[in-house]
């Protein structure tokens, strides 16, 4: 095997060459992951905020479940989604198996509990700070949720990032429901798995470096945004 420096050089070479296939794979990775994260946020943010901001019977149970679901094994999620979307399954007629949509569904299921559970924690902490003032102002339930979500927006960016990290690095679920079909459902992680199984470890590692670079860029961008917010005390 080559040393890490050569691997890195190969990765940079791939990027500089802007290999068409690689660009396609990266684009699909980002499309699938970002879609899943956006949908997961659309569901998980309000849900987590509800659990974090209100007391209701069974709240502790819901919290435990949410936290436990953060550890959902991707392969299990992939299997369940496969059984659902399979031609023999209840959602078979939608013909979504082996499409990017199927991968988005699987990743959404993986990411939503992460977003919801972390949102609950963030919102609960902020709620502790705001609760008396809100009660004094007579803030209603809807306004409360909206205000907490809005005021926690920069912390929630980090929450979305955690979801992004999980989704972008995930391989077990997407390979089952996507099928790793060339030019259709092949993403960064499934390509890495494929190249590893072909014994092309250098190429697999190079792709891993590219994936890492993407993750670093996304995180750096969000953190820069957050840092400016911290400076102005909005976070």
């Amino acid at each position: 095997m080559q040393d890490f420096g050569t691997t890195l050089a190969e990765a940079i070479g791939l990027i500089l060459l802007a290999d068409g296939d690689l660009i396609e794979i990266i684009t699909l990775s980002l499309r699938v992951t970002l879609s899943a994260v956006i949908i997961a946020c659309a569901i998980g943010l309000p849900f987590g905020a509800l659990v974090g901001a209100f007391r209701f019977p069974g709240r502790a149970v819901v919290t435990v479940f949410l936290n436990a679901l953060m550890g959902l094994p991707p392969v299990v999620v992939g299997l369940v989604v496969y059984l659902m979307l399979s031609a023999a399954g209840p959602l078979g007629p939608l013909r979504l198996l082996y499409t990017p949509t199927a991968m988005i569904i699987a990743q959404t299921i993986l990411v939503t509990p992460i977003v919801a559970a972390l949102t609950r924690q963030v919102i609960e902490d902020l709620q502790t700070e705001y609760s008396e003032q809100f009660a004094s102002l007579g803030v209603g339930p809807l306004d409360r949720i909206a205000a907490l979500l809005w005021d926690a927006r920069y912390s929630l960016l980090t929450v979305a990032l955690a979801g992004f990290g999980r989704a972008v690095a995930e391989v077990g679920a997407v390979i089952i429901v996507g099928g790793n079909i060339n030019h259709v459902t092949r993403v960064m992680t499934t390509t890495i798995a494929l190249e590893t199984s072909k014994g092309n470890l250098e190429l697999a590692l190079a792709l891993g470096v590219v994936l890492l670079a993407i993750a670093v860029i996304v995180n750096a961008a969000v953190m820069a945004l957050r840092a400016s917010a911290v400076r102005s005390a909005y976070a």
Binding site: E129, Y130, L137, V139, D143, D151, Y234, A235
Partner: peptide
């Protein structure tokens, strides 16, 4: 009510006033 440690929303001064009136 005004508390010993003021509770400020993570917003501008003017938005803090607007919020109290909006609710």
């Amino acid at each position: 009510m005004v508390f010993q440690r003021p509770v400020m929303l993570r917003r501008s001064v003017i938005a803090n006033l607007q919020f109290a009136l909006a609710v």
